[in-house]
Design a protein around this nucleic acid. Structure first.
Ligand SMILES: [Zn+2]
Ligand SMILES: [Zn+2]
Ligand SMILES: [Zn+2]
Ligand SMILES: [Zn+2]
Lengths: 426, 426
DNA sequence: TAATTAGGTCACTAGGTCAA
DNA sequence: TTGACCTAGTGACCTAATTA
């Protein structure tokens, strides 16, 4: 809407926000046509690598489309109607940011370099290995939760405020922070960002990150939470304790289905996870957008490389496009999830949430994660809140709906009410 | 007015009560435009089935419009001006209910499932058959009233209090209760509701139900009450004994006209009747709104199916929209009727109304229908209060206005003053 | 008065059109 | 195929009207 904000795809003069992204008239029309018929593959020698600028944007439709998807264009992201005062304020601030940005650019900070394959290989390999290390490191702690339990439905009728207050005593968000911190250490350029930017990116994108990075396999029917191939909990019970509406759950379910359908390789998974953290649209506070874009560019090259290992050039572009489309869907979906969390928390402002939770869910709070503190706290984390009784029962399948949340969300972010869990078995 | 009450159409943040329904700014504007020009039909594959949520509400205007109508939006439902203390109290209570609601949500009961055609067929067939059974069962009792009689106009000048007291001796609301109870037995899910919710729904929606379910044919001119094709009474006389204002009668007359103009098939009639009972906005006491919504959803599918039998896909959406519009009009109209009943009864608080009547008309009374008692009482109902004299005269047509009430209302709910009836003729 | 809403306004965008 | 331009919405905000 402000012409000083350039097209996110080709950096031409933007003609407003189209399909969720500031874009020029040309790129808007282009993406519109792509939705009717996506551009043919196997024309570009290196899909994803062509530079998209006004003069050359018509040279490679495939790359233009990939860029559209990468910056978050999606048919599910449509905005209509007049802007609210709040949105206008956002826009105004983005313009200011941009000006500061341009000054940085003049200092030759940003270079649109192309990585060598061996560098890419090294990055991806490190990320994959880090994931299995994390798995091993946290297994002992996570394993303690791999105990199926039954939810006491009676507790759903207790006053919400009471249940919320009780639940937070047992949250361990530090575990997640540690995991994501470990990962960012291996994303080239991420630790060079200011502490503030790092924290902000993690904060606003953690749901997306977690959804993709998830350490657990989701059970095939999608009805149960699995960890180490053991059923942990019925999804419907999580939905209720999470206080999520059917609609939000439906959205999550759909995105989870799409994610599962992708059958991500480990390599694709870690790179995509990293990509989620480079999304800056959710925050006004992020300062150094140019550096973040550079990180994004690096990871996109990694993605292209990983996909190229499995697919021939005919299919490679398609696969990349597909991955990025699902990423965009995931963003919209987790926006909803975050929103419904906010609604919940604002509805019960007097609940005694620990500061770490407030900070996590109230996006306008100023405190940020203290990475050093997290690192030092890593040793002292204690996760036991489930006592181990036994009772070989579980909510019946007929009560359940099809959803595939991930264990981490369940364990560290969700509103689990320990009092609701009355029997643990196996 | 309370922003925690979401938009009834798309569940976005509501901006107050518009056209009678809590709705967001967007849906308000949308409905406003629809009143100028309704959305084009035959664009949606399955009118009425699209989910209306903020992100997707612009995907299908037809379904959004149908949803508007289904939740009761109507140009005749406009409310302006400041809220009274009572209305504010209502709103406050609704917010509380909503919170409790979400906690109940839901023993897996609410699933937005789509019914198979054969199941729909079965439901509709059962409902239609039940109606003809009811007709047969109650014919002997109703037939006894199918005697035209003349009203003694002198009695209209007797003190109101006196007339009211006398009249209630002869009311038989039990008959109606039995009829509606029989019907609810065949509405899937209705009998699974708590006894309290069932009673409350019947209580607050009975006028609408009756108006549509009506067992009698209305005389063509609309000037006389008919049962089994025999004139029973002049409408204007009912108006006077009922103490209804010209305005209310005019409203009823208009709605009745609209209803008649629809030329409902038996199938449409029974399904619409069922739908009236799923309306929860009139009561604060209704608890399990989600289950009721599911019932409503089921019946909406039935309606769509019935309409689909007669109309091609081009016209189907239009017909459904039309039916739901009239339903909304009916609601407003019977709101007026109920209000004027309340006014009447509050004006004469010392009249010795039987408990069953108090309970029926004073919506804030706590007693509810006792279904089991009704069932057992069914055998003992005795409807004879009209003695059979004869006199071949009738109120002249010039006194009459165009109104088409239904016999059940006349017989069982209305304020008939037996003393007013001085001559009955063949 | 103050609260509250219908209807108007117009800054916005999806999708269609068509010359280049 | 492209992209400038157009049309039919959309929805945030405003004001006049309505009511307690
Ligand atoms: Zn562009
Ligand atoms: Zn290319
Ligand atoms: Zn809405
Ligand atoms: Zn539709």
């Amino acid at each position: 809407m402000d012409p000083t904000i350039p097209c996110k795809i080709c950096s031409d003069k933007s003609a407003g926000v189209h399909y969720g992204v500031a874009s020029c008239e040309a790129c808007k029309s282009f993406f519109k046509r792509c939705n009717q018929k996506p551009p043919e593959g196997n024309k570009c020698r290196k899909p994803g690598y062509c530079t998209i600028v006004p003069a050359r944007r018509n040279n490679c439709a495939e790359c233009r489309y990939i860029k559209c998807l990468a910056v978050g264009m999606s048919i599910n992201n449509i905005k209509t109607g007049r802007y609210s005062a709040k949105q206008l304020e956002e826009s105004r601030r983005e313009v200011e940011k941009l000006q500061r940005q341009r000054e940085l650019e003049k200092n030759g900070f940003y270079a649109n370099h192309t990585l060598k394959n061996e560098d890419i290989e090294k990055i991806v390999k490190t990320l994959v290995e880090k994931r299995s290390v994390i798995k091993k490191t946290f297994n002992p702690q996570l394993e303690r939760f791999a105990i199926p339990f039954k939810v006491n439905r009676q507790n759903h009728h207790r006053p919400m405020r009471e249940r919320l207050t009780a639940s937070w005593k047992f949250r361990k968000p530090e575990v997640f922070k540690t995991i994501v911190f470990q990962v960012t250490q291996d994303i080239p350029g991420f630790s060079s960002l200011t502490q503030e930017d790092q924290n902000e990116l993690i904060k606003v994108n953690r749901v997306d990150f977690r959804m993709i990075y998830s350490l657990v396999k989701v059970e095939d029917s999608g009805k149960y939470l699995l960890f180490n191939d053991k059923i942990v909990c019925a999804v419907e019970d999580v939905r209720k304790t999470e206080h999520l509406s059917e609609e939000v759950v439906e959205r999550i379910r759909n995105v989870r289905k799409k994610l599962d359908a992708l059958q991500l390789t480990d390599e694709e998974r870690v790179v995509l996870s990293g990509l989620t953290l480079t999304h800056t649209d959710r925050s006004m506070k992020v300062e150094d957008r140019v550096s973040i874009e550079k990180i994004q560019n690096t990871l996109l090259q990694c993605l292209e490389y990983c996909v190229g290992k499995q697919y021939d050039s005919t299919q490679k572009g398609k696969r990349v496009a597909k991955l990025l489309t699902v990423l965009a869907d995931l963003r919209t979906c987790s926006d909803d999830l975050i929103q419904s969390k906010h609604n919940l928390l604002f509805k019960y402002p007097d609940v005694d949430f620990p500061p770490s939770i407030r900070e996590m869910w109230y996006s306008d709070l100023q405190e940020a994660y203290d990475m050093d503190k997290i690192r030092s706290e890593l040793q002292n984390i204690d996760l036991d809140f489930v006592s181990e009784n036994s009772s070989p029962e579980m909510s019946t399948a007929s009560d359940l709906i099809d959803l595939g949340p991930d264990l981490e969300t369940f364990l560290f972010d969700t509103t689990i009410f320990p009092d609701d869990i009355d029997t643990v078995f196996k």
